[in-house]
Simulated scan of single mutants.
Amino acid sequence: MNSATFESNHKKLGMISFDSSNLGLVNGASFQHYIKVLLLPPGYALTVDFNVYETKNPTLLFINTNQYLDIRSANENKAFLIHYNRDFYCIQIHDEEVACDGLLFNNIFENPTVDLQGDELQTISQLFTQIDDELNFQDRSSEEMIRTYLKQIIIRATRQWKKQNLQNEKLDLVSTDQDFFRNFSRLVNIHYKEKHSVADYADLLNLAPKTLSNKFHKLNLENPNEMIKNRIVLEAKRLLLYSDLTIKEIAYQLGYEDPAYFNRIFAQKAGKTPATFRKEIKN
């Protein structure tokens, strides 16, 4: 697999293979505005939304259009990147079928990785190969076939993500709890610019604020107030990197009338001021 693309009526999906010899292609601006699914072998190191990950097993990653991705190092083993636009496959429209929004995408746990082993690795690898076959074959049925394979990847990855992140000794959740945390994550991602308090989200979930906080405390999770702040600071980091907005303008865009208060929250979470962060990340 090298590079192949499907494009029709504003709908676009493509796939490339890469390794240490052509990382510049993946890290450049070409794919920044696409939703991305990466299949990486062991031994790759990358930054996703300013967090560093190293692949110890074959790994799937799901990257949304507004996320920061930088593959820092690779090896001679091939990795694969599927990239597509919302016209080809919209996460939100299909979410009732695949239930990935808030887990694979836009998740409050900030863990975008899915480890693959055994039969699951074989199945996912085969689905990537089938998408590549359709991209190279392309007849009138190819679009729907590709979308079907992509949906299977997302569904299987969502199941694996739940097993790896929501069903362990630390956090053994039943399905109702999984739905609760997924809904909380989705709500934060939708409303973080104008809703900054636990009470705001408790109201959206028809809960008392104390009940919402207790759900997190019972399961030894970071409290919801910190998760809300994490999402706000993450967006601030993206804007500091990708936009030319002033720090005051970023504060206003994120719902803070007092830029000094925004600066204090950012420094508390990031360990440095917004000005220092922007200077370091752009150098």
Rank of each mutant, 00 (worst) to 15 (best):
M1K: 11
N2P: 02
N2V: 02
S3W: 04
A4D: 08
I16C: 09
F18I: 12
N22C: 10
L23R: 11
L39N: 09
P41N: 12
V52K: 08
V52M: 03
T59Q: 00
I63Y: 05
Q67K: 00
D70G: 01
I71Y: 12
N75R: 05
A79I: 14
F80Q: 14
N85H: 08
Y89A: 13
C90P: 00
E97C: 03
G102I: 06
L103K: 10
F105N: 08
N106D: 14
P112Q: 05
T113W: 00
D115L: 07
I124T: 03
I131Q: 10
D132G: 12
L135I: 08
N136Q: 14
F137R: 04
E144R: 06
Q152K: 15
I153K: 12
A157K: 06
K162Q: 11
K163G: 03
Q164P: 06
F184Q: 07
K195S: 00
V198G: 06
A199S: 07
A202E: 05
L207T: 06
S213G: 07
N214Y: 11
K215F: 03
K218T: 14
E222V: 11
N225P: 01
K229W: 02
N230L: 03
V233Y: 15
L245Y: 15
A251V: 01
L254D: 09
R264L: 01
A270G: 03
F277I: 03
